[in-house]
Design a protein around this nucleic acid. Sequence first.
DNA 1: GCAAAAGTGTTAGCTTTACACCCATGA
DNA 2: TCATGGGTGTAAAGCTAACACTTTTGC
Lengths: 233, 233
Amino acid sequence: MIDAGQVQGVGVAVSTVIFALRQHPDTGAVGLWLPLVRRIREPWQGRWALPGGMVRVTEGLELAARRNLLETTALEPTYLEQLYAFGEADRSPDGRIVSIVYWALVRADEASRAAVDENVQWFPADDLPELAFDHNLIVDYALWRLRTKVEYGRIAHAFLGETFTLSELREVHETVLRRPLDPANFRRQIESSGAIVSTEEVVTGGRHRPPRLYRFNTAVDLVDNGPLTPVRL
Amino acid sequence: MIDAGQVQGVGVAVSTVIFALRQHPDTGAVGLWLPLVRRIREPWQGRWALPGGMVRVTEGLELAARRNLLETTALEPTYLEQLYAFGEADRSPDGRIVSIVYWALVRADEASRAAVDENVQWFPADDLPELAFDHNLIVDYALWRLRTKVEYGRIAHAFLGETFTLSELREVHETVLRRPLDPANFRRQIESSGAIVSTEEVVTGGRHRPPRLYRFNTAVDLVDNGPLTPVRL
DNA sequence: GCAAAAGTGTTAGCTTTACACCCATGA
DNA sequence: TCATGGGTGTAAAGCTAACACTTTTGC
C-alpha cells in the first residue's frame, strides 16, 4: 500500500494479513490477533493499515510480500498464501493501486519477536478500529478464508511448534473456529486423518496425567491443494 | 496479457479462462472447452493464449476483464470470478507484467455466439497445445478450481438455461467431474440441498417417460461464499 | 410389448456426535 | 484421596453408495 507517488498508470502493491494466536491481556482469552502499521502520510495519515508496500520491478509478488513484512514488522512467516487481488478503480483516493493481498500465519514465539513500537501494534482480529483504505473488508475476507479452509490440520501447523499435545492442537482449532470441540472425537478424527504422528515423549508437570507429544506428519500432502500450493517453510 | 510496451515499472493485465460445455465434433463426447486467441506479435507470436489485455487506469479489475472478453471474443459471461494473481518477475520475457486471472463459465448457446475466426478458436480443456507465457499452468489451476468448488449446485447454473431436467444437471456434474454419478442418489442429494425447485412442466418427445423441468432456487444463497461473492447475472 | 430413461425404495457400511467412563499424575 | 485433564468405549443418528425395482412415455 504505502502511497503511490505515481499519478499516471496502475501501481502494484502487496499487503499481508498476519494472524497469530495470542492471549488477551485483560480477559486472558486466546484469540486471533494481527499486527497493523500506522500510516505516516496521506492518504489516511494516522490510521492503522495492513503492512505492505509497492512491488519492485525485479521481484515476484510473494517475494515482495516477504520483503515488506521483514522491513515493517521483522516477521518471517512460515505460512504465506495469496488471498485476493483488490483493484477497484476508486479504492485509493490518491492514484490507482492494485493490491495483491497475502495472508500469513505465525507462531506465538515468532510473533512475540515482531518489532512493536508506536507505529506497529497488535490488534484482536475480531475487534479492529477503522482501518485505512478497504483494509477492514480485506481482514474480514482473510478471516473467512482462514475459518473455511478445510485442511485445518495443516493450518494449525503454522501456529504450533515442532511438537505439541492434542490439547494444544485442539485449542488452535477451537480458537480459529470459535467453538468448543469434543476432545474424544477430535482425537479420533485427527489421528485417523494421518495428519499427525505420535512421539514417545510426554509432558510432565501438570497436575494430571501427562499428555503425549505429537508431531506433524511430513509425508506426502494429504490434501489436494492444486497446482499452486501455499508455501510452508 | 498482450504485450507490455512499458519497459520500466510493473504492468497490470487481466486474462480470463472461459469454460463452456461442448460436444467434441469427432467423438461426440461432451467436455470442457475454452476459447483462445492467437498472439499477433512478440513475445510468443503465433502461439495461442488466454484472452486478456492491459488494465486501464480508470477501470476496476473485473470490469477490465469483461471489457477485454467483449472485445476479443464477444462473450459476456454470466459467471465471472477472480482466480489468482500471477506475478513472478520472469513470467514474461518482455517487461514485468502482473496478470490478474479470472475464470468464467458460459452456456452453450452463449458460447456458440462467440466470435470465431482464424485468431480465435475453441480447444478442449484437457488437450491444449503449448500456450504462450505460463498459460498452460493457469488453465490447469482453473480446471482444478472448477472441479474442487464444492458448491457445484451453483457452478452448474452457469452452464444451463433457466429450466433443465435432472439428467441435464447431472450431465453437467458428470462432465466437470469426469465420472458417472448414480442418478438415484444424485436426485436425492440435489433435491435435499434445496438448490433447485421443481416446476410443473415436463419435457415430452423423448421415447421414454417425460422428465420434469426444474429451476434454480433464487432464494438466499445456500453456500457461504464469504464477503467476496462471485458475480452471477 | 419393448426399450429407454424417469423416478422410488431399501440396505450395508461408514462417519458424526454425544456422552459415559476409566487412567495417571500432582498437590 | 481428590481434582484435573488424558485417553478409551459405545451407541444413536445421519449420510453415502450400490443396486433392485416400479413408472411412463414413443415406437
